[in-house]
Nucleic acid binder design. Sequence first.
DNA 1: ATGGTGGATTTTCCA
Length: 255
Amino acid sequence: MRVATWNVNSIRARLPRVLEFLERKKPDVVCLQETKCLDEQFPREPIEEQGYQIASFGQKTYNGVAILARQRIEDVIRGVGDAEDDREARVLCATVGDLVLVNLYVVNGQEVGAERYHYKLAWLGRLRTFLDHRIDKSEKVIVTGDFNITIDDRDVHDPERWREKILCSSAEREALANVMGWGLKDAFRKFHEEGGHYTWWDFRTLAFKKGWGLRIDHLLMSPAAFEACTNVEIDLDSRTGEKPSDHAPVIAELA
DNA sequence: ATGGTGGATTTTCCA
C-alpha cells in the first residue's frame, strides 16, 4: 500500500499535476489539503477515471480536505464535531482497507502571538481530544497532512533565521508533541535521520530555487502502521515544472 | 525591500 499526503493549494488549479502524480506514482490512497472548493466543485470525473474513489470535505475559497483511494472509502468523519472548529474544513477521517486515515489541514497561525496563532495551539489541543474519543489506536492509524509545524530543527533550512518564528516555535512543537503523545511516530524519520529534507517552499521568497524549505507535511503513524511502514519519500518532481503547488507530496509505503 | 508569488474572488484575504 502506498499512502500519499499533498497540500495541492487548489485542486482545480492543480488538477493536471494531480493526474500526472496519480499516473506516475500510483498511490493507493492520497490525502489532499487546501482543495479550496465546495464539494460540488471538486473535479471528480478525471480522478474517478483513473480508478479512484473520492471523499471530500470542502468549503468555498479556503481550506478543504479530500481522500482519494483505489479501494472503498468507509466510515467517513467530516470535521471534529465542534461547530466552531468545523466552520473551517480541516479534518477528514476514513477507513480504507485496514488503514484508518486522519487527514488534516492544520491552522497556519499567521505569526507567533497572533490571534490565529493562539487558535492554532488550542485547535491542536482539541485535535488530541478528538483522537482520544473517536480513533482506535490499536488499528493501523495514519494521521497525516499539512501540520504547518516543523518537528525539530532538522526540518528547517536555516534554524537560526526561523528561531521561534511561525511554523517553528516551541509552543507549536509542544502542541504537536502532545498530539503525537496519543501514540504516533513520525514515519519519515524511520528512514531518514538527517536534516535537509523539506516539503514546503514559500512562493513569495522564490524559496524552492534557493533551497529555503521546511518539512511541515507529515505521516504520523500508530504502532501497527509504523511497524508496517517500509519507506517514506518526498516527491520533489511534483514541486518542479509547470504550475506546481508550494508543497511537495510525501509518500509512505506499507507492507 | 516587513518585499516577493500564487489562488480564489475581488478590489482583498490567506498563505
